[in-house]
Design a protein around this nucleic acid. Structure first.
Lengths: 204, 204
DNA sequence: TCATCAATATTGATCTCGTCAATATGCGAC
DNA sequence: GTCGCATATTGACGAGATCAATATTGATGA
């Protein structure tokens, strides 16, 4: 991954390392999927980045802040993926977005959990991460809006998000079914949402 | 709650307490919602139960095992609630089940997270809990089967579960919308599933 | 009735962890 | 070159999970 360089934080200000902050984030990302967010320890992160025990505190207020940054990046990437689905040619953006969402969860389950569990990172305390999350949902909404009447876009977007998110959760948490059902399920879910959009029965 | 008395484990075998195991579970349940599963500590559980530091290890292999028992009970109660929805008079069992599921998540979010996060408890290691989870899903399937053609019950049950589960997750994790939308959303979701069941377009 | 056993409890000890303090060090501005 | 700040590091502390060793109790059989 061509790592973060936040605009307000000039690269190459570091000391031993070139860029300790990035090294820490990369190490954390690595450990996250390997050990899980709960048992990821800052000490291991630092060691893996070739830094001292206390190094993470030079760049993040605490453990939660480091995890929040990983979550923010996750949301940002998710939003970007969804935007790609939205902009690609062809009319089945919804189906593509669903598959993409599910794939991301399956490929990086620990990150997915981290993004969507208040237990580990409370988005309310990290406005930048919260904003990235909102942007991802906004993109999904745009996709739904292209196949639903305007007055139902909000409800149907919520339903679409719930449907896909729920399936993604259940897949990674309960081992519902093998991951090669992903494309088929994405198709099913897109159909369900389109059919709900077309049915006046689903009106609020 | 009229607590657990597992058949194979006679009540009243305890020592200081009457029933230390139950006291521990009750204390854990309490702390779970108060502090969250991640920061719940066995020491605090023991103290709250009026027992020593090490007491939990007399009844549970380790922390995860204690949490797994809480999750098992959660699934059991969920299955029971869903069964009640299924058996009640009236034709909108699906809507009632959806509302019930969402309500449970909102009323005990930490337990809900615990039940559905492999990070904290890996169901694969706790067959009794996994079985309780399967029973809950089975009940949901029965509800869906009453309004869907037989060859689509599995797919539509999965969709229904995903839809409701996703919404429940998003509500408690992302603070999507106030909890008084619950009934309305349950109605929406039930309509969506019924409409999908009625539309041949949603066929696999 | 009483010694004994197994289940249950408790205290001691160790290791990991998050995080606060105090201290050191390198780089750019003067 | 020197100074100051951002960045780094080691020391210290308290919380927690869990292993080991030890103690206590109630039921059981002599």
């Amino acid at each position: 991954m061509q790592r973060r360089s936040l605009p307000h934080e000039p690269l190459k200000r570091a000391y031993h390392h070139g860029n300790a902050r990035n090294a820490l984030l990369t190490a954390a990302e690595d450990l996250l999927e390997r050990r899980g967010a709960a048992s990821l320890s800052l000490r291991q992160v630092a060691e893996r980045a070739g830094l001292s025990r206390q190094a993470p505190y030079n760049h993040f207020r605490n453990k939660e802040a480091l995890l929040a940054e990983l979550a923010r990046e996750g949301y940002q990437q998710l939003a970007a993926s969804l935007a790609t689905c939205r902009d690609a040619r062809g009319r089945n953006a919804l189906e593509r977005a669903a598959e993409c969402y599910i794939r991301r969860a399956q490929e990086a389950p620990a990150l997915f959990r981290l993004m969507f569990s208040r237990e580990l990172v409370d988005l309310a305390r990290f406005p930048e991460a919260a904003q990235a999350a909102a942007a991802a949902f906004e993109t999904l909404k745009q996709i739904v809006s292209s196949c639903a009447p305007a007055d139902r876009v909000t409800a149907l977007s919520l339903a679409a998000w719930s449907l896909v998110h729920g399936y993604a959760c259940l897949c990674i948490e309960v081992a519902l079914e093998p991951s090669d059902h992903r494309a088929e399920r994405a198709r099913l879910f897109a159909r369900i949402i389109r059919s709900a959009a077309a049915t006046s029965d689903a009106r609020p």
